[in-house]
Amino acid sequence: LALASAMPLAADTAPQDVAFGEYGSIETPLSDTAGDPEKGAEIYADKGSGNCVACHAISDRSDAEFQGTIGPALDGAGDRWDEAQLRGIVADAKKTFPESMMPGFYKTSGFIRPGDAFTGDAGSEPLPPLLTAQQVEDVIAYLATLKE
């Protein structure tokens, strides 16, 4: 099931076809269906998909037992960035923040020793993206609700 959900749908923009703007943003949604903020909130904290909470904290997310301190707190992220910028940050943060520690969630090739998920074995590129096009849209719909 996990594998099936990572398969790109025909209507989605494939990872290699994503067009980034000069400062790393992505204007066009990656899927046809609008993002669902509730699903995005789940993906944000889900260890098996987004796991954004490993590195970030959001003050009203007391449902996530441990929140990370690697990246900035995301309270107010929806004020600081528009959707195109958020889409770019989630898809490939290094286009916005060069050298960032944040992984690219819609990136499938160009890795050093790419692995097969967490097995430690070799994987072959293109790897399935960490999030599907729809999941990226869901997450940015959620981030857009984070206003101060």
Binding site: I70, K94, G104, P114
Partner: peptide, 20 residues
């Protein structure tokens, strides 16, 4: 790897931080 993380990202730049 796919997460593009070096030892230094975790143990030099971010020691003392919580990764979850």
């Amino acid at each position: 790897g796919q997460l593009e993380l070096a030892c230094a990202n975790c143990h030099e730049d971010h020691y003392g931080d919580w990764i979850r």
